[in-house]
Design a protein around this nucleic acid. Structure first.
Lengths: 339, 339
DNA sequence: AATAGATATGCAATCGATTGCGCTTTATAA
DNA sequence: TTATAAAGCGCAATCGATTGCATATCTATT
């Protein structure tokens, strides 16, 4: 072994005057090697401080034992929870996870995905960027038959595994809850409608109105990017209507919070004057005052499920796809309790 | 090229009846290859849908272009911010980041770090587990001269690059601020003292007391693991003292919040009866009510700096180490304003 | 003692990309 | 025209681990 280069199985082999194949087999506990030899080999390996070179092994095995995860933004509670859950499962199954964030930019997402392909990830777990519009980079994975799992934000036109929450039911429940609380004019801050999750939330909202015989008023829906700023602007707009809403179903907790702050500053009381419900159950939603009613999205669990699913696909080469819909849970807090 | 296996440079070479070396050089824009040949090669590469196999390249180059990041818990705002910042910088420099969480367990940390070594990461960025006590796994990196950067939670006995915030100054400032606000008996919830960050915060606290001529009272310091539950228990304990504190400097925002909730439930007013200051500036600290005074820790920036530093080390093989101390910023909010 | 069968190990190719060295061919200079 | 250099490209080894096939040794059986 050269100085300052790692010992390899060949160094161990030379030391014992045996072949590298034997060493390799011994270290992998291959039954073809006798126990005595194995022990000698392992002893030398230890004393040399040998560490297998995963790169070489991966190359030979055409398998990287790596799962790629792409999220819009790592630094967001829901996504970091998903990553955390997926990492947990992957680690226990002997996989490494590589992570990238698209920053919700289509171009970066394409780059990342291609780079992960070049790195020969065994599977890809992704929640697509808001801004994404073409999906050739993802179809590549399907074409090569590399397991691909969408979570939360999926692409309808790509047939593969998906893990989503029941956004429709979530939107429905939120709205029904507001109606039950006696709110009469319910506004909605909706996210980009090219993303199914936001479309479904809105549809759930509309269905609840319909079912309760409440006429649908287009002007009460404001579609935006659900940033904090958008939340303020949209709320301002809704409240300036000749006939403003007395409750707002916000597409996420970010806008729910910013709407709440805006309304409070205007002297509008929550939940007395206007009820607010968010979506996602961000950690702060339960500690702000008033606490925000919202829909819990089990991020950690989604990550676990996504990892379990993709590992199964990697190891069994199944060719059937499923869409796992996790149930939503309405968490009623102060911001929407009128009764 | 075999069916269902990726095209390689050899396939391109065969197609054009040239050698693989030429293809490799052409694709890497080596000046030794003529422009005409390069163009032909790139055209074929495109039409074949060729993607370089990074594994093979990495093996040959003894470089993985990968940076490992180990944090206690991915799913924590500060850490996910660091990861986010590091990923940003790494991505732009052409590196992939692999991420693992130790769950604050020593055993898992050791495992992860060794696995990252086997994966031949080019460098390792880590914030050590609370529970960690031996550091052989990290010394391995130093011994092999693989760049190692600690952030936030560093190991004093290992000489390497470190990126920390000025916890001492942070603790000092918090305490001085409470004193300035007229609080007389200031308690402190401290984290495990084997971690420098918590030790430094406590030392800053003590120094501020000393400088203001306030006698130090051992019983006002409670050392715990700074979980939400610990925060409640510690606060309960402090308030049950014969001479309870009128302000508490909490080692992190988690405990600050749980302390606040506990006190509120007991009918104790904040900041009138008891002042509270946290540490870390978790996102919720500014939106809860009362909002929590705290120390801002620039997580995203720390991640960026850590990545920049480690990439420089990787690419230049420098052998000098630095400790970058990022300034802390006291954010004064409602929970500690008495005047 | 001879042979089948089991046991233990080695040979050499392979995974895909890279690169030092050397061989042609063409261009330039004398 | 001949030497000389430069340009363009190929050969083959290399990175480290794996594995099908072959070989060598040993045990058991008749």
């Amino acid at each position: 072994m050269n100085k300052n280069s790692e010992p390899t199985i060949h160094d161990i082999a030379r030391e014992l005057k045996i072949s590298a194949s034997t060493v390799s087999r011994a270290l992998n506990d291959n039954p073809r090697i006798s126990l005595k030899t194995k022990e000698k080999i392992k002893a030398i390996a230890d004393s040399l401080g040998y560490r297998p070179n995963t790169l070489a092994s991966n190359l030979r095995n055409k398998k990287s034992n790596t799962i790629g995860i792409v999220v819009p933004l790592i630094n967001r509670y829901f996504f970091s929870s998903v990553i955390s859950g997926a990492e947990d499962v992957a680690y226990k199954a002997g996989y490494t996870v590589v992570i990238s964030q698209s920053n919700d930019l289509a171009a970066k997402e394409i780059n990342i995905v291609q780079s992960m392909f070049s790195n020969r990830v065994d599977g890809l777990i992704i929640s697509i960027a808001m801004q994404a519009s073409t999906f050739e980079h993802l179809k590549l994975f399907r074409k090569k038959n590399i397991p691909l799992v969408f979570f939360d934000r999926a692409v309808p036109e790509i047939e593969t595994d998906k893990i989503v929450v029941d956004d429709f039911a979530g939107g429905f429940r939120v709205t029904q809850h507001l109606i039950d609380q006696g709110y009469k004019r319910i506004g909605h801050l909706a996210g980009p409608q090219n993303l199914m999750i936001y479309l479904n939330r809105k549809n759930g909202y509309m269905e609840a109105l319909r079912k309760n015989g409440i006429p649908f008023d287009e002007s009460l829906i404001n579609i935006n990017r659900l940033t904090s700023e958008d939340g303020v602007a949209a709320t301002q707009y809704l409240m300036s209507l000749p006939h403003p809403p007395d409750a707002i179903f916000c597409g996420n907790d970010t806008t729910a919070l910013s709407a709440m702050i805006y309304l409070r500053d205007k002297g509008i009381r929550i939940p007395e004057d206007v009820g607010i419900v968010g979506f996602s159950n961000e950690p702060y939603s339960k500690v702000v005052s008033p606490s925000i009613s919202t829909i819990a999205q089990p991020g950690f669990e989604m990550g676990q499920k996504a990892a379990e699913l993709i590992i199964r696909k990697i190891e069994n080469n199944e060719r059937t796809y499923q869409t796992i819909v996790l149930p939503t849970e309405l968490i009623v807090r102060e911001s929407s309790i009128r009764k």
